[in-house]
Design a protein around this nucleic acid. Structure first.
Lengths: 209, 209, 209, 209
DNA sequence: AATGAATGAGGATTCATTCAT
DNA sequence: CATGAATGAATCCTCATTCAT
């Protein structure tokens, strides 16, 4: 659905690039639904409306395709988050920035969900080789959050009884898990975002007195 | 590690029952690591220290085994939670009970992790047939939480700006996600529990005034 | 490297004919190295410095290409041998003529080796259809040798204890096998020729008395 | 048809060992006919009268199977040759021993032909990995011949104008090539052996005077 | 109660071949 | 004349499952 710019040689051009993207989208969808081991190339091909061997014209192996989906999932997420934070007014407090991040993460996860869900859900299910490179990208994303939490802690916007690392992980759980339960019928994304922001703010903030 | 009683015929006996449990434990372990589609019977067999065909003496199919692991995962969790709540002093507030539930869930998830993680992680990855029966069991577990949240909301212990359903889901995310990141080296379970309880209490509670 | 005239329409012209030859040369090389079943059109294309589908402009199928290589291999060999024998002085003995043939065969095999090796090595490995037409060509080549041996036998230049047919086959082995072991580093072609001639002459000739 | 003793664990016992051997025999047959790249596991399976996947119960991969066939081909040949030479009377001359070797090689090649032909024909057609290990075994076999030729040369039983290395190669060609042309209809093995021995003796021996 | 042996149904991947450009 | 894109027919290999013992 959205892939950060163009990657690799073969076809930044027209038809070719679109086919490649169609395959990537299809893979993201299947991957987020069936998981790494459950993704069959024939499913991906059907979803992309072509024959399975055609995939090999664009990706050298199944794992190559998976890796790119997961990479795109995280990279797009990071790009989205980075942009959102860059757009934050200069006078925003560290906690404001955390809430901006919560919104960005949720909106991306629930709207572009295929890539993001694929990346999130298959985190521990892929073979070592993919895992490693994925882990590296994951670290970069986590680093942004760590900095956000750290800044808030130093500004006294996080309660003393919370360990910054654990706090960060609990927040990630709060928002990552949404991919598992959220369905459009249950609540609008706007409502989910509003609730999650309130939930997270109070979860972290010192008690007003 | 712990399976709530034995269902079905075959083995309430001694050796037989123990082998069956060994297989179940092995399956839980593999299932929580590799996911539904990635679990091979030969892996399970190796982990249980026997040959793959032997599994068929105790389970009629791969899916049957998976289903039982996931069922045990949830059933044990529910039993554990129910017991914990039953042991709560009569004068405990609804919020106190929620925090007891947070602790029970986390301890079970992180200590007995294999069954619980298997059940949690594979929630959306199993085939319809299993999914359906699992969903039914999941509902029962969710109902306990729904009642806890509802009671707290009616007692005015949950902020007005939170939708009870969404609040419940956010809490589940907070604690379910721990299975993905927690490792003994990073923090003791006691610390995780304490942090999560504080996090959840403040996430839900009305602002002190 | 050398193809006896151009058969078929397509390209007696310049560039076209050259490309066709480049493909044929490439196929000969790959065929002599990897064998019939191991020859991939993409290998041939790479060797000829073009894309695989381009081959179809010059040859109607993979087998067609193979067949032509093998045919050229034998046809060139026969042409070379025929020329060499025609150049033999009128007073040459039948044995002299055999030794001329040994030299011609060896030089051609080891110098133009690709086509010859391809033809020799894949003799029994190609599908029936090709095999049959190849066998016919092979017979013509074998006929020359049969006549050479026969003439020598009738002139009393071959020992009585040798069966002419078997003798011919043993000679063919002596010289055909060189394609398998000969490498420029080990010995010059001149030395191989000299040794082979001596070897064959004595192998066949009646004992001096 | 004949494999030197028992190799590896799985089954030196009854049925299992026999099935394994049936597969090996089948592979040798197909390999000698179609060549490395042309050998399909389904062909082997059909020849061995079982389903293709069953092969994986005995061999871990196609290449593994090929390698064992080729190894057996050479190893059996060497064992056969060694035995034949050991049985040679003490007063045999070096040339006598060469002729014994010629007979042993030919008989083995033409009678057990599948393994031997497979090993001989596919010498240059297999992938590097197999080639390397095969080459090692081939060296051992070649060493026996080198010693035979060397001994004959030192005893003055080989003409001075022949290079020992080239002479050895020419002999190998004489006898190896028989696998390509010999068919029971054309001549008995006894006749082939007799002709080849006479051919080789005179090819190498100094001229009587 | 458990295993060795074997099978059948897939699933990834390769490759000759086609076709529009 | 040649290529990029795509396809269909294999082919290797894996894995759940069966069955005789």
């Amino acid at each position: 659905m959205l892939a950060t710019g163009s990657r690799e040689g073969k076809g930044t051009d027209k038809k070719s690039a679109r086919t490649r993207l169609r395959i990537l989208d299809a893979a993201a969808k299947v991957l987020s639904t069936k998981g790494y081991a459950g993704m069959r190339l024939s499913d991906v091909a059907a979803e992309a409306d072509l024959q399975a061997p055609a995939i090999y014209y664009y990706f050298s192996s199944r794992d190559d395709l998976v890796e790119e989906v997961m990479w795109v999932g995280l990279a797009d997420m990071r790009a989205f988050l980075t942009t959102a934070l860059a757009d934050t007014p200069a006078d925003a407090t560290p906690m404001d920035r955390i809430l901006v991040a919560v919104e960005a993460h949720l909106r991306h996860e629930l709207e572009i969900s295929d890539y993001a869900t694929a990346a999130i859900r298959n985190s521990g299910l892929v073979p070592e080789q993919i895992e490693e490179r994925h882990r590296a990208e994951e670290k970069k994303y986590g680093a942004i959050w760590r900095d956000l939490v750290k800044a808030a802690a130093e500004a006294g916007e996080i309660r003393d009884d919370l360990d910054p690392y654990l706090a960060q992980m609990l927040v990630m759980g709060t928002i990552n898990w949404a991919a598992e339960w959220w369905k459009p019928q249950r609540a609008t994304i706007d409502r989910v975002v509003a609730n999650a922001q309130s939930y997270v703010r109070h979860a972290l903030a010192p008690v007003d007195r």
